[in-house]
């Protein structure tokens, strides 16, 4: 018979390795993809989930050892999931503002990237 602790240990080990793997893939995307806009995808999605996985593992570990539910990890996770899209949005905006080069296969017929643009009109502002 497999005990409760063994199962929980397996779950925590799985979350730790999955988190590490996701973060590593995100960083791999950051180094290997061809242009900035594509590189933006790796870190914003995979790294956030990777760190989320590690935090969930830590939460279950401390709950298992010391009893009770610890909320601090939960707060960090929620904070990361709220802030990651915001910083990605701002990074994409600053890249568009500087008109960084795109991969030739990108369909980029948009007014933000046309050369004769008046920049003040297109750099829309998001307040939240």
């Amino acid at each position: 018979m497999i005990g409760f602790y063994t199962v929980m240990e397996g779950v925590i080990a799985f979350f730790l390795i999955a988190g590490g793997a996701f973060a590593f893939i995100g960083a791999l995307g950051l180094t290997h993809l061809r242009d900035f806009y594509m590189r933006l995808h790796g870190p914003t999605k995979t790294t956030t989930l990777g760190v989320g996985c590690v935090l969930i593992a830590a939460m279950s570990y401390f709950s298992l050892l010391h009893g009770g539910v610890s909320f601090q990890e939960m707060l960090i996770t929620i904070f990361l999931f709220i802030t990651a899209p915001v910083s990605a949005h701002l990074l994409a905006k600053s890249a568009l503002h500087q008109k960084l080069p795109r991969d030739p296969r990108t369909e980029d017929d948009i007014e933000e990237l046309r050369e004769d643009d008046d920049e003040e009109e297109t750099s829309g502002e998001r307040r939240s």
Partner: peptide, 11 residues
């Protein structure tokens, strides 16, 4: 470019 470095530091 600068946004690239910034993205790397963010990650």
């Amino acid at each position: 470019d600068l946004p690239d470095r910034l993205l790397a530091l963010d990650t």
